[in-house]
């Protein structure tokens, strides 16, 4: 069985491997400290760490799209750096 039809490229494969590793990491974290660490976020609703990961990933996707829309000529790595800082903030405060 080959996966040629899926038209894999190294960057997209890396992207999915990183997402998969994140999910594995979150599972290990959940096994070590069960319950999802719920807390009241600064947005006035309760979040667990799964919610925080979801918000981080979704927000990061939007940060990249907005970067493409506003600064199409600049490197996308800047957007990646902003997304990393954003994800850290989400895990710290949201």
């Amino acid at each position: 069985m080959t996966f040629n039809w899926m038209a894999w490229t190294t960057p997209t494969a890396t992207f999915f491997i990183v997402i998969f590793c994140m999910l594995v990491g979150m599972t290990i974290w959940e096994i070590k400290c069960p319950g999802g660490a719920p807390r009241q976020s600064i947005l006035h609703f309760e979040t667990t760490r799964g919610d925080r990961l979801f918000v981080s990933l979704l927000g990061s996707a939007y940060i990249h799209i907005i970067w493409l829309a506003l600064f199409a000529s600049l490197s996308l790595w800047w957007a990646f750096a902003i997304a990393c800082v954003y994800a850290l903030c989400v895990f710290r405060w949201v």
């Binding site: 040629n4 039809w5 899926m6 038209a7 894999w8 490229t9 960057p11 997209t12 992207f15 999915f16 799209i65 493409l68 829309a69 199409a72 996308l76």
Partner: peptide, 30 residues
């Protein structure tokens, strides 16, 4: 996953793909 792979490439059929990076996204957003 296949859609994600397609979104960064161009094809003229025959299962041959060419890397274009974020060009389609740039083009689409504008």
């Amino acid at each position: 996953m296949t859609v994600v792979n397609y979104s960064v490439q161009d094809t003229f059929g025959n299962n041959q793909f060419f890397w274009v990076g974020m060009d389609w996204f740039r083009e689409l957003i504008h």
